[in-house]
Every structure is written in C-alpha cells, then in structure tokens.
C-alpha cells in the first residue's frame, strides 16, 4: 500500500531524510520507530502530500505522492502530531466539516458513526475547546477515519495520554489494522512491540532496521548475554581474563557491579562458567541471562545519537 524508494528530503543544507526505502503492505500495522528528530514526521508529511520530497519516490495505493498528490490524499487518513482541531467548533461540526471536505456522501450519519467508534458520541455537541486532551486525540482520530480510508497515518498518536488512554488507543489501532494499512510513529518501544506487525527503525534520516519485532529481537539474540556478579571482585582485570578464556565466550565487559559475558548463539555456558569460578575459589553471587528488549535493539541501532 505504501512504497517508499530512496526518498530524500533536504531543508537547505540539512538532510532530514537520506535515501530511505520501506514498504507497508495491505492490512499491516507498521510501526515507525525512532528518536525525536529522526525524520518520522517529515516522512509522514511527504506521504500525506503536505510537502514534496527532494528526490526519490513514494507511492500510496499506487499513486505517486508528488504527481498524483490529490489522489494520494484521498486514500489517506492523517492524524498529525499536534491534533489539528478548531477550538471554536463543536465536535460533531468539526467531523462533519472534514467529512464534507473529504466528499463523504452522507456526512451526518458517517460523523455519528465515527464518533461512536472512538467513543465520543456523548460529547458530540461540546465545543472542542472544552474537551480534554485524550478526547481531542479521539476526535482527531475520528477526523482521520471519517472517509473510511484504506491507509491511516498517525503521527505519535499516544503522546500526552494517560496510561489508561494509551492502552485503549493501542487496542483501537490494533482493531483498525484488521481492515486497513496503518502506519504510526512512536518513540515508545514497547508500544511498537505490542501493536505492530512490523517496525521500521529510523535514525538521523536513515533506516537502520526493518522487521517484525520478534525478528529484530532474534537478530540481536544471536549474541546472548549473561550477567555475572562475584563477591568482592567487581571490575577485576584478572577475572575478565579468566572469563574470556572459557570456551564459547566471545566478549567480556565490566558492567555495573559485575561482568557482562557475551556468548555465541545456542551455547549454554552457564554450568561451565559456574564451575570455572568455583575452581578458582570465587563466590558467585548472581548469574542471569540478559533478555534483549526492543529497547536494546533500538539503543543498539541508534547509538550514534548519544549526547556528547
């Protein structure tokens, strides 16, 4: 449904997107993951026809975002990061206004339907300025859904919501993904892991990883890691040497008050490791595998982004 090929966007000398390529298939929920300023919003703005790319190509449902911008915009429901609302309109008035611009035939009925979907029927007559942040988000979502678009683009939809609302919204996005392509950006990793079929990780305007959350995890788990803590011997060079000598260990590093042992895949070295430590008369306090989370995958891939 969405196909992006070698997309480049420059703002003056600044390159916001540097030849990114990815795809989102029909009926898929694609998570667009990256730190702030990575280029998520820029990519979405290009896809929604708000701004043209500097170079490269992007198509939505087979239409080019630049040369067939209006056709693309018809296929998309878009919720920008700052929810675009008119404070002086009523909830229903606003949704009907958007429906009219979208050319929805029976806009009254449809507005009622989408407000029902997002659970805002009871506040349909309220002025937008009077409703809460969570409700605004839902009205914004109603706006994006009013013309029943095959592609939905949501820019950080869960930002600023309380945990309860976030959970509701995630469920809602999951239910939407059953009939349409949903692309949503976030910098919250667990969110992408819970909701998405696939994630694209972007950093500094470049795609650094693509795949199902599980796939990405497995890729990293090729190096499984074990945390070892030994009584009174934190940070000892001699122990690092001793551990490195064990067969199957690829790397040993000091980590917090112990050591982080990286091993090759499928090598169960814990018994041997414990035995070696015993033989040397050391007291083993802790020995646990370190689970790889999306968080770590993310950090691993976006490392260059650390503050100096």
């Amino acid at each position: 449904m969405i196909e992006v090929k070698n997309l480049v966007k420059r703002f003056g000398d600044f390159t916001a997107l540097n030849k990114i390529s990815f795809k989102a298939y029909e009926g898929e929920i694609l998570g667009f993951l990256g730190p702030n300023g990575a280029g998520k919003t820029t990519t979405m703005r290009i896809l929604t026809g708000y701004m043209p790319p500097t170079a490269g190509q992007a198509t939505v449902a087979g239409h080019d975002v630049f040369s067939q911008s209006l056709s693309v915009r018809r296929q998309i429901g878009y919720l920008p990061e700052t929810v675009p609302l008119y404070p002086d309109m009523t909830v229903r008035g606003y949704v009907e206004f958007i429906a009219e611009l979208r050319g929805v035939p029976d806009r009254r009925t449809r507005a009622r339907e989408v407000l029902e979907m997002v659970g805002m029927s009871e506040r349909a007559r309220s002025l937008i300025r009077t409703i809460s942040k969570g409700m605004r988000q839902r009205v914004g979502l109603a706006q994006a859904l009013v013309h029943d678009p095959p592609v939905l683009i949501l820019d950080e939809p869960t930002i600023g919501l309380d945990p309860h609302q976030v959970a509701d919204l995630r469920d809602f996005i999951r239910s939407l993904g059953k009939q349409r392509t949903v692309m949503f950006s976030t910098h919250i990793l667990s969110e992408a892991e819970q909701v998405c079929d696939r994630v694209v990780i972007i950093n500094n305007g470049e795609i650094v990883a693509t795949g199902a959350p599980l796939e990405l995890r497995q890729k990293l788990e090729a190096n499984s890691r074990i945390f070892v803590r030994i009584q009174g011997r934190a940070g000892s060079k001699a122990i690092v040497k001793m551990l490195t000598a064990i067969k199957g260990v690829r790397h040993v590093a000091e980590y917090q008050d112990g050591f982080l042992v990286t091993t090759s895949t499928n090598q169960e070295i814990r018994p041997r490791l414990a035995a070696v430590l015993m033989e040397n008369g050391l007291e083993l306090l802790e020995l646990r595998p370190m689970a790889v989370t999306l968080e770590e995958i993310f950090l691993e891939y976006t490392q260059g982004d650390k503050l100096a």
Binding site: R45, R73, P80, P84, L85, Y86, I98, L101, R102
Partner: peptide, 14 residues
C-alpha cells in the same frame, strides 16, 4: 500556528 493548516494541506483540496 494551531497546526490545522497541515491538515488542510493534506486534504484532497487544492
């Protein structure tokens, strides 16, 4: 300023 222009400019209108 309110960000609604972004919405208007991504609507299927010229």
């Amino acid at each position: 300023r309110e960000g609604t222009l972004e919405l208007m400019m991504s609507m299927p209108i010229r």
